[in-house]
């Protein structure tokens, strides 16, 4: 199925839960609501004409300093799906606010989501509801804050031993 047909199918099936769809440089993207996210992900994996067996990547983007989007939801959690059977890709996104940065987990759909979600929690402070063990992945437990947020200064060090610089 080509990307445009995929997006049309998603819109037809999930209606208003698909907030927005677009195509940019050949990449097809659908933004879905948080409530529908798990249903959409599960459907993408199980529907034979899509068959997204792989969650290639899961990450987040902090839009707090993006021109024109300062006031909207702060974070976007981005899912990149790939199908080995059909050799196609799809990008799904879900938007969340800073005060309510909580996304349902995808660990039971794809076990790899475990580490990816831990990384997103570590770097952006977005929590995942239902994650079995949401610890930091890359930074140490003593670290305060989430370094990939746009308001975290790049050189704010929190050394465990030794001086800060």
């Amino acid at each position: 199925m080509d990307g445009a047909a995929m997006l049309a199918e998603l819109r037809a099936r999930f209606g208003s839960d698909v907030v927005e769809t677009h195509e940019h440089r050949g990449d097809h993207t659908a933004v879905v609501t948080r409530e529908a996210l798990r249903r959409v992900l599960a459907w993408c994996r199980d529907e034979p004409s899509l068959a997204f067996e792989m969650l290639t990547d899961l990450t987040a983007v902090d839009y707090v300093k993006y021109p024109g989007r300062q006031d909207g939801p702060r974070f976007e959690v981005v899912y990149h799906l790939y199908s080995l059977t059909h050799n196609h890709r799809l990008r799904l996104k879900v938007r969340v606010d800073e005060d309510d940065a909580l996304v349902p987990t995808a660990v039971d759909l794809w076990p790899i989501a475990d580490w990816f979600e831990r990384e997103v929690w570590d770097m952006f402070g977005v929590r995942f509801a239902g994650h079995p063990d949401l610890r930091r992945l890359l930074m140490y437990e003593e670290f305060v804050g989430h370094p990939l947020r746009k308001d975290y200064p790049i050189d704010r060090r929190q050394p465990l031993i030794g001086p800060a610089s």
């Binding site: 930074m139 370094p147 975290y152 200064p153 790049i154 050189d155 704010r156 060090r157 929190q158 050394p159 031993i161 030794g162 001086p163 610089s165």
Partner: peptide, 13 residues
Amino acid sequence: YNNYATVQGIDTI
């Protein structure tokens, strides 16, 4: 690498 994650020279330790 001058950022939050790296030690600025091991002679600080």
